[in-house]
Design a protein around this nucleic acid. Structure first.
Length: 354
DNA sequence: AAACGGAGCAACCGCAGTAAC
DNA sequence: CGTTACTGCGGTTGCTCCGTT
């Protein structure tokens, strides 16, 4: 039943893609021609615009949009974002699609509370790197730069202010000591880095502490579930909360989606164990690099909710059998409706543009 | 119960570097 | 070679939720 529904979704996507393409080409040619006319036959250099702002949606993403985006990226891989709105029919700009994917939909993202260890890492890295959130995020592979930035602005900034106040008192007492400590920290970091870079130690720090490359290159199959699974999970989550609910409260759905994505990324027990090991080793490496004690902190703790979810997902779930007729109807009704709208908007004059 | 304000966070904006036409 | 889009990144905004009055 699920397979049939996904097949229908694909059909819907295909239809939507074609319609979107028609609208896109019409709009592009129209705006291009208008631009040329405005410029009094002046030749416009450079690329033609990938999309214009007409009919581009803003605001929170709906679960339906997420499904479309996820399934498209699963099929084609991330990248070439300008093609995404066109090919999917999403009424979003490419930038918005990219942001949505990188910050929320891509697999391996951990949502929820930051662990104590993560906090420490962020504080230390921020002190070393400044507000270079992307660089900081590369040391916390499961967190996005946006997430870290938000967390910093809401939680850690205050914490740092408080600490700075205390440290300010301390600094008045012994500024020299504070400076020496800072230099030691930097020296330790450098030393650790040079050790890590030395070819004699292939399993050195760098392998654990190296910035993750994000998802620039296609993720290995083990890290990303198949498109069908992804969409099925998304739909499952959507059905559980109910279409109306998910439409009005996209945040809740977003979280469940992200959890699913995480569950996808650790789709086998082996990868889970490896993730735990990586967390511990990362913790140790970081400890050696920055010199704070994290022995009392369970670095792998943060993955436990996901593990729980994974266990949940692995159980035979009756909700997988939920009839998808509601969403199917919604998808196709909307598709049919939009199709009519699109076609009614196409004037004979615009048809001549082809 | 209603109003208000702060916290949290998703998404947008704008800039800079790079790539494409 | 000039112009413009694409991409990545950091800063900012605005919405929603929740606690307090």
């Amino acid at each position: 039943m699920l397979v049939l529904s996904l097949e229908k979704i694909k059909q819907f996507q295909e239809k939507r893609r074609i319609k979107a393409r028609v609208v896109f080409l019409l709009e592009r040619k129209k705006s291009w021609r208008q631009a040329c006319e405005k410029g009094r036959n002046k030749v416009i250099m450079g690329r033609p615009p990938c999309c214009d702002k007409i009919g581009v949606m803003k605001g929170p993403w709906t679960p339906e949009e997420d499904i479309i985006l996820v399934s498209y990226i699963q099929e084609h891989g991330p990248g070439n974002w300008r093609a995404v709105p066109t090919n999917t029919g999403l009424l979003r700009c490419s930038k918005s699609c990219r942001l949505r994917w990188t910050n929320y939909l891509r697999p391996g993202i951990k949502r929820g509370n930051f662990t104590h260890n993560e906090e420490k890492m962020i504080i230390h890295l921020q002190a070393l790197l400044g507000n270079r959130w992307a660089a900081i995020a590369s040391y916390l592979p499961q967190r996005t730069d946006n997430d870290i930035k938000n967390y910093w602005n809401t939680h850690l900034k205050k914490l740092k202010k408080l600490q700075a106040g205390q440290e300010g008192q301390f600094r008045q007492i012994s500024r020299g000591q504070w400076e020496r400590r800072l230099q030691t920290d930097i020296h330790m970091a450098r030393q650790a880095l040079s050790e890590a870079l030395s070819p004699e130690k292939p399993n050195s720090l760098l392998t654990e502490l190296k910035p993750s490359c994000g998802y620039e290159k296609p993720a290995p199959a083990s890290l990303y579930a198949s498109s069908t699974e992804n969409i099925a999970k998304l739909l499952k989550g959507w059905m559980r909360s109910g279409p109306n609910q998910s439409l009005t409260n996209s945040t809740t759905t977003q979280n469940s989606f992200n959890n699913m994505a995480v569950a996808d990324s650790f789709s086998s027990e082996e990868t889970l164990n490896r993730a735990d090991e990586n967390d511990t080793e990362l913790s140790e490496a970081f400890e050696s690099l920055f010199g704070f004690d994290s022995s009392n902190i369970d670095f792998s703790q943060s993955t436990s909710p996901d593990t729980g979810l994974l266990q949940d997902e692995s159980k035979p779930n009756s909700s997988a059998q939920v009839p998808l007729s509601v969403i199917e109807r919604w998808l196709f009704d909307e598709g049919a409706m939009q199709g009519k709208e699109y076609l009614s908007e196409v004037t004979p004059d615009e048809n001549n543009l082809f």
